[in-house]
Simulated scan of single mutants.
Amino acid sequence: MATAPLPARAGVGFKAEHASDVFENADPVSWFEVHPENYMVSGGPRLQMLTQLRERFPLSLHGVGLSLGGGEPLDKNHLRSLRALVDRFEPAQVSEHIAWSGHDGKYLADLLPTPLTLAALADLVNAIDEVQNAVGRRILIENPTSYLALPQNAMPETDFIMAAARQSGCGLLIDVNNIFISAYNLGFDARDYIDVLPADLIGEIHLAGHEQDADARDDVLIDTHSRPVASPVWALYWRLIDRIGAKPTLIEWDNDIPDWQVLAHEAALANAIIDASENCAKKPLRKVAS
């Protein structure tokens, strides 16, 4: 199967419970994304289903387990398994998080924040280089969600992620929901973050839902991927693509999985914003009478 590029339309994270709906009629969804860690097996129904999906749609692999930002050696077995999936399914894109999830041989089932320091930047660039060499292609790295500002942070997150991309030659996967959550939790303006992101580095955009922390004493938003995309996140998304142009856009929903029609509706909303933004860009400017 030849590598098919991701269209600058809405995609959705694939879930097995939606397979019958997807294979019958996936409209308005144009492509799908999966976590490669769920398919690092030697055979069985998971790989069969992924083969069926890939035969019909462009595919993106979005990793959650490499611990790029941990400053420790990467798991060579994980890299070999990832390369095997890349070779077999020829995804349009491969991406990972700027985060760490392991320490001293122990795996933590979370994406923990990487300090924004020059030393951490150097470690991250080296890790990205290793992954890109291992899989034989350019990858994308995703901006994190922040719940508190680390005291050792020495630069803005935008400077950190752009430097990592420029120095390693990778691209950026911009999660707009992550930006909104981090801005809310840390008290900065999400629009300022959005407005400095360079179009040439961005290969994909993610949208997702979030929730307020269950403990009412903590005024914190949590990146749960369990709700529809919130209105202010849609507004930030429009602001971003209005400036940089349409990009492949994923609707993420990983917890409290809804019926397929709910995800299809979210994808349709993303496509409508893409269309509206493109239509606005095509309209000629009116001359103002002197």
Rank of each mutant, 00 (worst) to 15 (best):
V94I: 15
A119K: 03
R137H: 03
S101P: 00
E90Q: 01
R138T: 09
N133A: 13
A109Y: 12
L118N: 05
I139N: 00
S101Q: 09
P91N: 00
D129F: 07
R83I: 08
L121S: 05
A84V: 04
L116T: 10
L111E: 02
I98Q: 02
H97Y: 06
L111Q: 13
I98F: 07
H97W: 00
L140Y: 13
D123V: 01
Y107D: 14
E130K: 11
L108S: 05
H97L: 02
L82Q: 02
L111T: 04
D110V: 07
D129G: 10
A109Q: 14
E130V: 13
S101D: 11
G102L: 01
R88I: 02
K106Y: 09
I141K: 06
H103W: 11
P113W: 11
L85D: 05
A109K: 15
I139A: 13
G105I: 13
A84C: 07
D123W: 00
V94T: 04
V86K: 00
V131H: 11
R138I: 10
E142S: 05
N126R: 15
V86H: 00
S95Y: 03
D123G: 03
I98L: 14
L112Y: 08
V86P: 00
A109T: 09
R83G: 13
W100M: 00
A119R: 07
K106L: 14
D129N: 02
G102W: 08
I128K: 02
R88L: 06
D123N: 15
P113V: 02
Y107T: 14
L118K: 15
W100I: 09
S95P: 03
I139F: 11
W100L: 06
A134K: 06
A120M: 12
A84Y: 05
R83T: 13
L82N: 05
L112C: 03
L108V: 14
L124H: 05
L112I: 09
A119S: 04
A122Y: 07
D110C: 13
V135K: 01
A99I: 12
L116M: 12
W100P: 08
I139H: 07
L82H: 04
L124V: 04
E130Q: 15
P113H: 11
E96Q: 08
H103G: 04
P115G: 06
L85E: 05
V125A: 12
P115S: 10
I139V: 09
V135L: 06
D104H: 13
P115Y: 04
A84R: 07
L121E: 05
V125R: 04
L121I: 14
L112T: 07
L140N: 11
S101I: 01
L116H: 09
D110A: 10
L116R: 03
L108W: 15
T114C: 06
E90C: 01
I141A: 15
R137G: 14
P91L: 00
T117G: 08
Q132I: 04
S101Y: 03
V86M: 01
D123C: 02
P113E: 01
A127C: 14
Q93R: 11
A127V: 00
I139M: 12
G136T: 06
R83A: 08
A122V: 05
W100A: 00
D110P: 04
E130Y: 10
L85G: 12
A92Q: 11
A109N: 15
I141R: 07
I128H: 05
A84I: 02
A134L: 04
